[in-house]
Design a protein around this nucleic acid. Structure first.
Lengths: 233, 233
DNA sequence: ATTTTTACTTATCGATCGATAAATAACATT
DNA sequence: AATGTTATTTATCGATCGATAAGTAAAAAT
């Protein structure tokens, strides 16, 4: 493929005559993680360390100076994407009583999808889920406590239902359906690469409007069931 | 791990002293695909052919007598799961005007989730999506034409809206949100292995009730926009 | 009973993977 | 300018992967 004379250079994945510029460890670390995110998003975690090294213009064993093992590199990738990119403003915005609930939810989903609807975020999230790492379980737990429960309480209030009791599982599950529906839009767009004839803001508006219009009666029914269960218990 | 003396037996993945029972080719073919589905659902497509052979109690090269390459085996897996398990009754049931729309949709999703909410179906579907094969694009296209468009038309009718014009992209997208929300319930249950405090039928009922209650006004708005667009065009 | 067919195994190749040890050269310290 | 530190490369190991060629034995055909 290339005209390199040494066959061992091909075998070891050496790029050719080393550049040998020396960088600060912190910069390298960040650079490695950044490119690893890029590569893993494309190929998945079975992407070779040699491929990564080549994209970095660096030899493969150098990676092991910064990450004891490939799994540690992967852990750093998780940290960067799913921890560092989380915005605490999401929760705050959703709990801001001064704005109407519809506006809050739409604003949240527009910003949230803007953050997570990238190949890096979505594909790596799904790769991780299939791998069985607990990243997804932990992330979804965060979504539930930081996003869905606040939304549930705020929505309940805006319908003049119930007080401050914690949301019931059925209530939370209801809002998971909205979350999942919107998330799956991103999966179709980014993973399956569907042509998406409806743009994101429109999709979000329609989904939220449908949901908020319909959720009132169901929440009411759940609240009634709840009080009945309590009285018969 | 095992007490086998020969190291080459370990290396080649030989199981031990061959059983040498001779089977009919068609039976073998089916057996291979069945076990391949099981294995791929667990590990993904990077599962080794040796691992598969071992689970079948057969040597690895025998696989290549039935499938020219690993990719052909994978193709057979797709065919079995996503083509052979599709039920034409789904479309028919959804278009059965004699039953109320809510009942039809709930019945469909109960049967549909019963079919696809298995580790085999969901995990392999997601593995395929990340691989970039067109399985998912083709499957989703089928879902859209065979399921979502009929649902859209039936729902529209039940609200006394519009005639037989084909559903607009925005309308279809709306029903994709419901589909995605329910699908994502399965992903959380089966892939992320969340504890699911709300059972499937209840989730489906709540989701469909919320959706059907709220979708009326939005469909109406979309229909009005449509006619306005047509008149100004 | 002998021959023919073919399902199945043994053995092995070449590529690629994650990881380690040792050599080298760029930068910091004095 | 000499020395020390460490970022980076070279070389290589052992395991595992998909795939192929050649041998073996079970069933079918005669």
């Amino acid at each position: 493929m290339d005209g390199s004379s040494s066959p061992s250079a091909e075998a070891t994945g050496t790029v050719r005559a080393a550049r040998r510029t020396r960088n600060k460890p912190e910069d390298r670390h960040r650079e490695f993680v950044r490119k690893a995110i890029e590569l893993f998003a494309e190929v998945g975690f079975e992407a070779g360390t040699r491929e990564l090294a080549q994209r970095l213009g660096v030899t493969q064993p150098l990676l092991y100076r910064y990450f004891p093992s490939k799994d540690d590199l992967i852990a750093a990738v998780y940290q960067e994407i799913y921890v560092n990119r989380w915005k605490s403003e999401w929760r705050e915005g959703l709990m801001d009583d001064s704005r109407p609930i519809r506006e809050r939810i739409i604003a949240f989903y527009e910003d949230y999808t803007h953050t997570i609807f990238t190949p890096e975020w979505i594909r790596i999230y799904i790769f991780a889920g299939l791998r069985g790492v607990d990243i997804n379980r932990r992330y979804a737990a965060t979504v539930e406590t930081e996003i869905l429960r606040p939304i549930t309480l705020a929505t309940r209030q805006s319908f003049g239902l119930g007080g401050a009791e914690p949301p019931s599982p059925q209530e939370v599950e209801l809002f998971w359906t909205l979350q999942g529906g919107i998330f799956y839009y991103g999966v179709r767009e980014i993973v399956y690469q569907f042509p998406m004839p409806v743009d994101r803001p429109t999709m979000i508006r329609n989904a939220v409007d449908t949901f908020l219009t319909g959720v009132g009666p169901v929440l009411k029914r759940l609240a009634d069931q709840e009080t009945k269960d309590n009285s018969t218990r």
